[in-house]
Every structure is written in C-alpha cells, then in structure tokens.
C-alpha cells in the first residue's frame, strides 16, 4: 500500500497538479479579452506589468493593504493559515528524507518542535476561520458546505500528519491517510476552488493591469492598495 501511494499514485497526483495548474493559467490568459475586459493589455504592457506587480506585492504583505489593516483579526488568521499551509510541507524532516531517498536531494529541515508549532498554527487558524464563518452574519450568508469541504481538504494532511508523527494509534494507518490526504489536496488544487493557489496571482495581476493601464495607472503613481 505504502509503495502504491508513494509510487504510481504520487506520480499521478503530481501530473494532475502540475498539468492542472498550468492548464488553469493558460486558460486564464487565453480567456482575457482586451475589448470585453476593457483593458488594452498589449499596447501598454509596461504599465500593465507595473500595476500587476504592485497589486500582487501589497496583498502578499501582512497588513500591506487597507483591507488587511481593516480586518486585523482575520488578517492574522489568514496569514498564519496560508504561511503554515504553503511552507511547512517543504521543511518537514520526514518529507526531506523521502526527497533524498527518491530524488537524491533535500531541503533544509525544521526541528520537530517547529514542525509541530507550524502544524498547530494551521489548525488553530483554521478553527478561528470556521468560528468566524459562523459568528459573523456577513460571512455566514455567503458560506456554503463547499467552503467547509475545501477547508477540510486543505487541513486534512496536517491533522493526519500530526497524528502520524506522534504515532497516535496505528502509525501505518495515519501515515497512509496522511499521504492520501496530501495527494487529495494537490489534486484538488486545480480542480476546486483551491485553484486560487494560482488564481490569486492571475486575478490580482489582471486587476492590477486594469488599474495600471486604464484606471489611473498612466496618470498617477498607482492605486494605494
């Protein structure tokens, strides 16, 4: 079982992930239309690129935009969740051992304590995000079961990883579940709302180009995000 999930199934997962994400990006760019979007992308590419980079840059910085500053509690939850989610998997000791075995290289590994901390940070942030979803009427009204499903898909590898590492109950069971949930996560990225993994950058770049080219970027220093 272990050989299957870390062998053929893992490769299938990687293929779906990389091809899916690439397809999404190509589909997005091909679907942009200067006349329908009302943005002259090509003739003013330098203004567009400047606008796109500004639009992405400020939103990647915690408290870097008016909106992040307006919702400080959610901003902390958001960044804790996403930083933990995106960076932890690369620097887990066990993952790097696997990388070394299979591919002959590995990345820097964090201590087990740090890994536990990062994992718990993701889980605590997720709990706060769920609580916020339920507590605030303005969020509750737009929340659907699908939102909980994608959150569960994203968090599952962390829960199972933590249980496996601390060998709670049956280690092998949690290990296999961990690998499967990780693979499900990767597959879900291009196929579900988790496509915002790439969609965030595409969408932010587009609105940045819109502001950079048409909505004032050519007559000002740029929008104060």
């Amino acid at each position: 079982m272990y050989a299957f999930v870390t062998g053929p199934l893992a490769w299938l997962t990687f293929i779906i992930f990389f091809c899916g994400v690439t397809y999404r990006a190509i589909w997005y760019f091909r679907g942009l239309n200067w006349q329908l979007d009302r943005v002259a992308y090509k003739p003013h590419m330098s203004y567009g690129i400047k606008g796109a980079l500004r639009s992405i840059f400020f939103w990647l910085i915690p408290f870097g935009t008016h909106s992040w500053r307006f919702y400080p509690f959610f901003t902390i939850c958001f960044f804790a969740f996403h930083i933990g989610l995106l960076f932890t998997p690369f620097f887990i000791y066990g993952h790097n051992v696997l990388l070394q075995e299979r591919f002959g290289f590995s990345l820097w590994s964090m201590s087990d304590g740090a890994a536990d901390f990062m994992t718990c940070m993701v889980l605590v942030a997720a709990i706060f995000i769920i609580m916020r979803r339920n507590a605030l009427p303005e969020v509750r009204i737009i929340t659907t079961p699908y939102d909980y499903l994608v959150l569960a898909i994203a968090v599952a590898p962390f829960v199972t990883g933590l249980l496996a590492r601390h060998q709670v109950g049956n280690y092998n069971f949690w290990l296999i579940t961990h690998i499967l949930s990780g693979e499900l996560f990767l597959v879900a990225i291009p196929l579900t709302k988790l496509s915002h993994f790439i969609g965030f950058f595409l969408s932010r770049a587009q609105i940045g180009m819109d502001y950079g080219i048409k909505r004032g970027g050519m007559k000002s220093k740029g929008l104060s995000w």
């Binding site: 091909r30 329908l36 959610f74 737009i142 915002h196 969408s203």
Partner: peptide
C-alpha cells in the same frame, strides 16, 4: 470569459468586501 468566470469560481466567501460597500453600512450591516 476567464476573468469573470474565475471571479465567480474562486470567491472564498471571506466577507472582506462587506464593509467596503456603503449600502451594507447604510443598511445597518
């Protein structure tokens, strides 16, 4: 096309747009 489709698809339903809207504020949230 892709811009609008992506917007409709990836909206994370986070509600951060709520307080940006003057209608939301004027109508007692």
């Amino acid at each position: 096309k892709s811009r609008l489709k992506t917007w409709l698809k990836i909206c994370a339903h986070c509600g951060m747009c709520a307080d940006s809207c003057f209608f939301y504020l004027a109508n007692k949230k």
